[in-house]
């Protein structure tokens, strides 16, 4: 083993700010649903911020990501503007999808964010195709596909792993194992050694990390993405973590043992990196200032969203298809 150089304080501070931004955005996303400003499904990423942050810290603006229903964190980490996201969540003009998609379909192609997704694990299938396109077009990009542990037992994931390996696609799979698929403990319905073994059986390089340790995620993602960029084919990052809240923002999570929730909250990825930074000599006040600045920015994002008008009704019928759209019917 070679000693890996520790990350610079500046890099870690940047990741800290990112995690705080994601958390604040999703805390307020939950409030938006509670107050009726957002509708439908809102899946909060609170508790899992280190994974999106550590992975996306190793992606270029031109790289692609695909996500799943719990997709706010990945979007923000990939550089999507929280203002456009908040507007989307509130179904307003200026939302990243014009208010037509909502939380589960947040996407911003200008940032290489190919979309959250409502169907487990269709984002992974799309990511395979994106990697195929990158290869065909001889582009200098890689693709990262995030998915939950619930995806481990759906056929398309197996097809994606096989496919990516057969065609040696520039694709990083990231399994965010938060132990649950909605109200179900995923382990209870998953045979064998689980998430890592799935990929290993397809001869794909894997790493396992503590997904609440942003430095570990960052380091592993750095190794795997470097390998992919070198033409090494697909790789797979398996990160363990926990969602603090219910599956959906209004789910109280009564099927989980409160002691389990508590023990995972004690492993808070943000508190951990703050302790690390303080050990590096960063001032506590500076960290608090970051959190406050983030809060102001996210407050402003939701404020802008509340002030934005709803989309004009005719947009219900735009962008269906070029020929034979609703007007034709």
């Amino acid at each position: 083993m070679t000693d890996k150089a520790l990350p610079t304080t500046a890099r870690v501070l940047e990741m800290h700010r990112m995690m705080c931004t994601i958390r604040e955005f999703d805390e307020q996303a939950g409030q938006a649903l509670d107050s009726g400003l957002a509708r439908g499904s809102v899946h909060q990423y609170v508790g899992e911020e280190a994974i999106a942050t550590g992975v996306c810290a190793n992606l270029a603006a031109t790289d692609y990501i695909a996500s799943y229903h719990r997709g706010h964190g990945h979007s923000i980490a990939k550089g999507v503007d929280p203002v456009g996201m908040a507007k989307e969540l509130l179904g307003r003009t200026g939302g990243v999808c014009g208010g037509k998609g909502g939380s589960m379909h947040i996407a911003d192609f200008s940032r290489g964010m190919l979309g959250a997704n409502g169907v487990v694990p269709d984002g992974v299938s799309l990511a395979v195709g994106a990697a195929q396109a990158v290869k065909l077009l001889r582009q200098d990009r890689i693709v990262a596909a995030f998915f939950g542990d619930g995806a481990l037992n759906r056929g398309p994931l197996f097809e994606a792993l096989n496919w990516a390996r057969v065609y040696q696609l520039p694709l990083l799979f990231i399994c965010e194992d938060n132990l649950y698929s909605a109200t179900q403990r995923t382990g209870a319905v998953t045979a064998g050694p689980g998430g890592v073994a799935r990929a290993q059986s397809f001869d794909i390089v894997t790493e396992t990390v503590d997904g609440n340790d942003v430095l570990a995620v960052d380091a592993a993602a750095a190794r795997l993405t470097a390998r992919i960029r070198d033409g090494g084919g697909p790789a797979y990052l398996y990160a363990t973590t926990y969602r603090w809240y219910g599956h959906l923002a209004f789910d109280k999570g009564l099927y989980r043992d409160p002691a389990e929730v508590k023990s995972w909250r004690e492993r808070d990825c943000i508190a951990r990196i703050e302790a690390w930074l303080i050990g590096r000599g960063v001032d506590k006040a500076a960290l608090a200032a970051t959190r406050e600045a983030v809060k102001r920015a996210i407050d402003a994002a939701y404020e802008a969203a509340r002030a934005a008008p709803f989309p004009d009704k005719h947009h219900a019928f735009t962008d269906v298809q070029d020929i034979g759209g609703p007007a034709w019917a």
Partner: peptide, 16 residues
């Protein structure tokens, strides 16, 4: 319903 996917925002959803 019109032949359109179901949109998210309430005023648009109501159109369907």
């Amino acid at each position: 319903s019109p032949r359109a996917p179901v949109p998210y925002a309430k005023p648009l959803e109501d159109m369907c």
